[in-house]
């Protein structure tokens, strides 16, 4: 019951967020320079051609009329068709989404698999070799751009040692290198956070109680402290997943993956208004959903947080 009211309230908030963001985007892309009609018509087009295309796209109407008509479409879940390809925007997004989804999920899994064990180890054995290794890793992970990592990974594992395909998509093998490049960069931040959080929890009073109860060090650290330490880590991992679900533009570019990032990027290049708007709405929905799930999860792990 509590969860249901929580979900309903969150849904209301989601609608408001989506409306606000898409409205802003609607006006911004129309105010900034760039006209889809010019893109479609090409360089040699006459003024009449351009006018005709504008009329066809509906971009010759007053802004407010365009906005209202767009709004009435949106409430009927009609996100329009791409100005360039003529395909429905929903179709375009859903076509690309599986690749982005698998890339994001693999990326976050890799990131968590690296960050949490190494972060906990660094915190538990502070100033040890592990801790220094962890620190070096996260410093490098934060300093090295993921596209460089991606290019290096391609050079080594696809060009020199041919164990992974150089480009393309369609199988899990195509996703391993991009997911690694994405995951390692994210892991750097997550590792620091895990370490800091674990160090803080280990200094709390309930840890003294756990020791005074005669529990083994393993129980004190991995049962008592870790459960509390994971809370902020979960939140940040959730946000990271949200970012990745919006498409990893640079990584998709490096590995020539037809994901959402590239779709939206081309949408912007070509001033494909419906595609940009649809993309923004999609990303906003994804983010709200992720936040919702993270909050639900949070309340399971941390009983003090009552969902409201």
């Amino acid at each position: 019951m509590q969860v249901l009211t929580f979900a309903l309230r969150r849904f209301g908030r989601l609608l408001l967020t989506v409306l606000l963001i898409s409205t802003i985007i609607f006006f911004v892309i129309r105010v900034i320079p760039g006209d889809p009609a010019l893109v479609i018509a090409g360089i040699d087009a006459t003024q009449e051609d351009i006018q005709a295309i504008r009329a066809q796209l509906g971009t010759d109407r007053p802004l407010i009329i365009q906005y209202l008509s767009w709004l009435s479409d949106i409430v009927r879940f009609d996100f329009g068709t791409s100005m360039i390809s003529g395909q429905p925007v929903t179709e375009l997004i859903l076509e690309r989404f599986p690749i982005t989804l698998s890339l994001a999920v693999m990326g976050i899994v890799i990131s968590i698999l690296i960050a949490i064990p190494l972060g906990v180890l660094s915190a538990v054995k502070r100033w040890s070799l592990w801790d220094y290794l962890g620190m070096v890793f996260s410093q490098m992970g934060m300093a090295i751009p993921s596209f460089w990592l991606g290019i290096m990974a391609l050079l080594i594992f696809a060009v020199k040692i041919k164990i992974f395909p150089l480009f393309g998509s369609g199988s899990i093998r195509h996703l391993i290198l991009p997911a690694l490049s994405l995951g390692i960069a994210r892991a750097a931040v997550l590792l620091r956070l895990t370490r800091a959080s674990m160090v803080e929890e280990l200094s709390k009073e309930y840890v003294i109680t756990a020791r005074a109860k005669g529990l083994t060090e393993r129980m004190v650290k991995f049962k008592h402290a870790l459960k509390n330490a994971l809370l902020p880590v979960i939140t940040v991992a959730g946000i990271q997943l949200g970012y990745m679900l919006g498409g990893a533009i640079i990584i998709e570019q490096v590995f020539s993956l037809p994901g959402l990032g590239r779709l939206f990027l081309f949408g912007v290049y070509q001033r494909d208004f419906p595609l940009i708007q649809g993309g923004v709405i999609f990303i906003a929905i994804i983010f709200s959903l992720i936040n919702f799930v993270v909050d639900l999860f949070y309340s399971v792990v941390n009983p003090k947080i009552r969902i409201r």
């Binding site: 709390k204 009073e205 309930y206 109680t209 005074a212 049962k223 459960k227 509390n228 009983p303 003090k304």
Partner: peptide, 14 residues
């Protein structure tokens, strides 16, 4: 041992 401030000496997550 029984500690002074149970609110801080009990594990909030268990």
């Amino acid at each position: 041992v029984v500690f002074q401030e149970p609110a801080r000496y009990l594990n909030p997550a268990l």
